[in-house]
Nucleic acid binder design. Structure first.
Length: 571
RNA sequence: UCCGGCGUCGUCUAAUGGCAGGACAGCGGAUUUUGAUUCCGCUUACCGGGGUUCGAAUCCCUGCGCCGGAACCA
């Protein structure tokens, strides 16, 4: 089949949802049409967990000829939803690389239609108004072991219920005074079926419909019907909705949706990540509790935060491909995300040099005033490819971490009497260590080997370490923000206490270095420019940067075998 | 005491009654002017117990464990 060929064009791995979609197409269900949807509630920012759902839903639509994925905002709760969130969500989906075309919808588009359906249900005696208190309704619902009691409203005539519902709609009743309930089965073992609430009263301004309505549909009433109205074929959601599936189907029955054209709800496991919290509520707490600087704080797992941190859409999509999709609760190791990130950045970032914690080096035998303009490739694996000039002179900065006065055995960087290579420049040897009154190293006096220009010594002797450096006189200053994992424990939510998870915040998730030194080629770098600082990691220019005031965010470090060895040595 | 879902390397995920494979992590090695990258190699798994079958991760029974469910949230 030519369809098969189309489906195999991309190399995305399959998963059980994709399998179901393929089976349905083979059976000719929905005439072979596939329509999915991504249905965020605009009450917060999108995070990496949403990315999994976005990649799944838009991914399926992309892989099917004529496939369609709607972006539908599930905006049925005016008290928590805002335009700011719908705009950020649209921007994030676009940034991730997906396009909903003309298929931008809102559940609030269907308020009128939903109301018609509800009225028809009341007329058919399938729904009624319950005007007791929330507390009474809760208490008469029964529990897991006992059936509930039937509400008095059930006995009213359709005409009476219609009149009451009309009063609800007109705003004659206060918030909480009454709800519309479907006549389910108060004795059902499935608590969801015990006369589910369809509408509640909220005298609140809605971000789109304004004050047109004061009754708002509940999720179970709105969602399946919205799917149906849009012609969605596969309604993919997360596992916590498995319990809602019978009700999803039941409401479709009530409105008379023909079996052949109705959507099918399919559930998959939401993403969990080690060292990360992904619940919307927790993310809100981090933002509103000022534990982070905002929704786009580079430590946040929000797409806005990750973007600012320096993640690429490609890395996130590759990650989503690799974690797969299943119906098993799972926790993905964050190192898999980091791997996908490094893999992508490694392939796209030019290599440059920057010194984060400068320590001064003076080459005592290097002529005062002389400057080498070294031609250094942006991609060392392509020595003849694009390059930039890097000035080298008598006074340099190297990384403080690259010098130890009393080095352990396996440390092969600079120490008194030791030789190292300065990348692309030459071999130097440490002659003298200068210190201040407190015993801090302030300067290293070194000599350079004039026969090693370029970095290769004439006599062919082996130099184990190569250090990055910048010329003191030529370097630009920059602020560098060193980001690390927001939590220091693998499962921040493991504790019992309500706010215990906050105690697991990593106190050193952000370290700001005010006086880093970067090579002059970086002087005019603009926000979003991503580079590798050789031997350190991947960095991106932050939007806070201004002309003459560079600001870099560390996206992620390079893998660091030495750090592991050093850490073990201490243990 | 109820209803529903789920159990495969440390982690994530394949297998659709026929050799339990991949990725990440870890460990070891080669190359390296980034202790990076790249390359090579290694360790490690079918929740337990029965049954059906020539043959079971897969089908059946049973036990156990984990997750979700009693909002006028989604």
């Amino acid at each position: 089949m030519s369809d098969d060929k189309d489906a195999k064009k991309d190399d995305s791995p399959g998963n059980f949802v994709w399998d179901l979609v393929c089976q349905d197409r083979e059976k000719g269900k929905h005439g072979g049409k596939v329509v999915t949807r991504f249905p965020p509630e605009p009450n917060g920012y999108l995070h990496i967990g949403h990315a999994k759902s976005i990649c799944l839903n838009f991914g399926i639509a992309q892989r099917v000829p004529g496939g369609q994925c709607n972006l539908r905002f599930d905006d049925t709760n005016p008290e928590t939803e805002e335009v700011e969130f719908v705009e950020s969500i649209k921007a994030d989906v676009r940034w991730l690389g997906f396009d909903w075309g003309d298929n931008l919808f809102f559940a609030s588009d269907y308020f009128g239609k939903l109301h018609e359906y509800a009225v028809a249900m009341i007329e058919a005696g399938a729904a009624y108004v319950d005007d007791r208190t929330t507390e009474e309704i809760r208490q008469t619902r029964g529990d897991f072991y006992k059936p509930g009691d039937e509400a008095p409203g059930r006995k009213r005539t359709p005409a009476e219920n219609l009149a009451l519902f009309e009063r609800m709609k007109k705003g004659e009743l206060a918030d909480g005074a009454a709800v519309l309930r479907a006549k389910g089965d108060m004795a059902s073992t499935d608590v969801k079926m015990r006369d589910p609430v369809m509408y509640r009263i909220r005298h609140a301004r809605h971000h789109r419909t304004g004050d047109a309505w004061c009754i708002y549909p509940m999720y179970d009433w709105a969602h399946g019907q919205s799917d149906y109205i849009e012609g969605v074929t596969h309604s993919v959601c997360t596992l916590e909705f498995v319990n809602h599936r019978p009700l999803y189907h039941w409401f479709l029955d009530r409105i008379g949706a023909p079996e052949a054209t109705r959507p099918q709800q399919i559930e998959f496991a939401r993403l969990n990540l080690t060292f990360t919290v992904l619940s919307k509520r927790k993310l809100q707490e981090l933002v509103y509790g000022k534990h982070v600087a905002g929704w786009d704080d580079p430590r946040m797992p929000t797409l806005a935060g990750m973007r600012r941190r320096g993640f690429t859409p490609e890395a996130i999509r590759a990650f989503c491909d690799r974690i797969g999709v299943s119906t098993k609760d799972s926790v993905v190791d964050v190192s898999l995300l980091e791997h996908a990130l490094r893999e992508d950045l490694n392939a796209r970032c030019p290599r440059v040099m920057a010194v984060l914690r400068p320590i001064k080096v003076t080459l005592e035998n290097f002529p005062e005033g002389e400057v080498w303009e070294i031609d250094a490739p942006y991609d060392p694996e392509k020595p003849d490819g694009p390059s930039r000039k890097v000035p080298f002179s008598r006074e340099l900065y190297i990384e403080a971490d690259d010098f130890m006065e009393n080095p352990p055995k396996k440390f092969f960087r600079l120490s008194p009497g030791a030789e190292v290579r300065l990348r692309y420049a030459c071999i130097i040897k440490c002659k003298e260590v200068k210190k201040d009154g407190a015993g801090n190293v302030t300067e290293l006096v070194c000599t350079y080997d004039p026969d090693s220009r370029g970095g290769t010594p004439k006599d062919g002797r082996k130099i184990k370490a190569t250090l990055h450096w910048v010329s003191a006189k030529h370097a630009a200053s920059a602020e560098v923000r060193l980001y690390d994992r927001l939590f220091r424990v693998e499962n921040p939510l493991s504790g019992e206490g309500k706010d215990e998870w906050l105690s697991h915040l990593n106190p050193s998730s952000l370290e700001v270095l005010a006086n880093a030194k970067v090579e002059p080629s970086l002087t005019g770098a603009i926000a979003g420019h991503a580079v590798q600082f050789e031997r350190l990691g991947y960095f991106v220019v932050d939007p806070d940067a201004k002309p003459g005031a560079l600001v870099f965010n560390r996206t992620i470090t390079l893998k660091d075998t030495w750090a592991n060895i050093a850490a073990k040595g201490e243990g």
